[in-house]
């Protein structure tokens, strides 16, 4: 089946199966920042934005992306770089496998116009598992990044 979607600002035509999920389609089309973690919507690693809303790409049927706007980390390079600098400085990074999903959720929170408090941030990050660091340093890094960011 043919799916027309705008991915990171580029119009693409994707050829997909009826039971294919976006994590598979996007990786097949070389958007390799989209990673497969648990593959059952529990870990947050495969998070992407569809029409600016974070969704787990492992459970989003590719056929449904028709006419939608998809954002992966490749589409927000400046934000991702700045966030990764803060991650580095705060020591929040170890393996980095969960970072691209987190970056997209943080970006969506920024764009949502919701007031950012410790509580809203925590609420937004529930569902992003990190097996290395224990979240404290990540929270600090994200808070610094949000304070530092003028967008």
């Amino acid at each position: 089946m043919k799916v027309n979607a705008t991915i990171n600002g580029m119009k693409r035509v994707l050829d997909v199966q009826p039971d294919e999920y976006l994590v598979d389609t996007l990786r097949r089309y070389n958007y390799l920042s989209v990673r497969r973690g648990c593959d059952t919507t529990s870990c947050g690693v495969c998070t992407i934005l569809v029409d600016d809303q974070p969704v787990p790409s492992c459970a989003y049927l590719s056929v449904r992306a028709d006419g939608k706007t998809i954002t992966t980390v490749e589409g927000i390079p400046k934000h991702a770089e700045k966030l990764s600098e803060h991650f580095g400085e705060t020591g929040a990074d170890q393996c980095g496998f969960c970072n691209s999903g987190i970056a997209l959720s943080v970006y969506a929170l920024q764009k949502s116009g919701k007031g950012i408090t410790d509580e809203t941030l925590r609420h937004y990050l529930v569902g992003h598992l990190c097996r290395c660091t224990g979240y404290q340093a990540q929270h600090q890094a994200i808070k610094k990044y949000l304070g530092d960011s003028d967008e």
């Binding site: 919507t41 529990s42 947050g44 998070t47 809303q53 974070p54 969704v55 787990p56 459970a59 989003y60 959720s105 969506a108 609420h123 937004y124 990050l125 529930v126 569902g127 992003h128």
Partner: peptide
């Protein structure tokens, strides 16, 4: 409902 997993799953 706010206690069901995370924002991204609830968007889906």
């Amino acid at each position: 409902v706010s206690q069901i997993m995370g924002v991204s799953l609830r968007n889906l």
